[in-house]
Design a protein around this nucleic acid. Sequence first.
DNA 1: TGTGCGATGTAGACATTGTCTACATCGAAG
DNA 2: CTTCGATGTAGACAATGTCTACATCGCACA
Lengths: 112, 112
Amino acid sequence: MPQSNYPGEFEQMVLLVLLRLEDDAYALAVLKELDRSAGRRVSRGTLYKTLDRMEAKGMVEWTTEASTPERGGHPRRLFSVTPTGVEALRASRETLVRLWSGLDVVLGDPAE
Amino acid sequence: MPQSNYPGEFEQMVLLVLLRLEDDAYALAVLKELDRSAGRRVSRGTLYKTLDRMEAKGMVEWTTEASTPERGGHPRRLFSVTPTGVEALRASRETLVRLWSGLDVVLGDPAE
DNA sequence: TGTGCGATGTAGACATTGTCTACATCGAAG
DNA sequence: CTTCGATGTAGACAATGTCTACATCGCACA
């Protein structure tokens, strides 16, 4: 069994953006929000690959849009974070917060 | 030049642990602290590889211990984070803090 | 006085994650 | 028809994460 399942740094950003977008989490919106709030600009291929891999790990899931995909092309996918994904984010944040504690002198105050 | 240099999730932990250990950052101590404060248990080889790669990127540097390496074996290396490394940590923390904001409802309070 | 032990460090291999470019699909506007 | 925009997929390759095996050097002590 493959244990040590820590989401990579980019995977974390994607998970967080998915949570932020709630019902609006389709690929292009994720791409935009990733750029806007994390300054991360990547290609669509990069995002899809990451999303697919996280699905395989049970961190995200999706439904193809049911309502009229009026605007042609492939039916778009609506992503969401699974409980497993949320748990991974929680654990990761907890660890980081603990590691940061006491280092404000050198790292500065994030609320600046 | 390849720019977009984001430290990976494990690299970040290592950098943070190095900062926490200050003058005591030699490999075995890092390994112990990584386990103790981040629950991360890895082999020595893993740590060295990571450290070497980060050195190549200018995030860490080291000096071989000058004072009597009384306890035999190879002279041990004393690691430290460079300003570049500190800056990377700062940027990373800033992004995460921003992405987490507003998500306490789903992620819970880290100060629990 | 040689043998094992502990604290170090190095090398090579391989799995996972990060990232891009090229290509394919399908309505609507020309 | 042809083009365009919004989508998604596939394949390749670079960067990161991780291990095991091996090498070095004092010291304890049989």
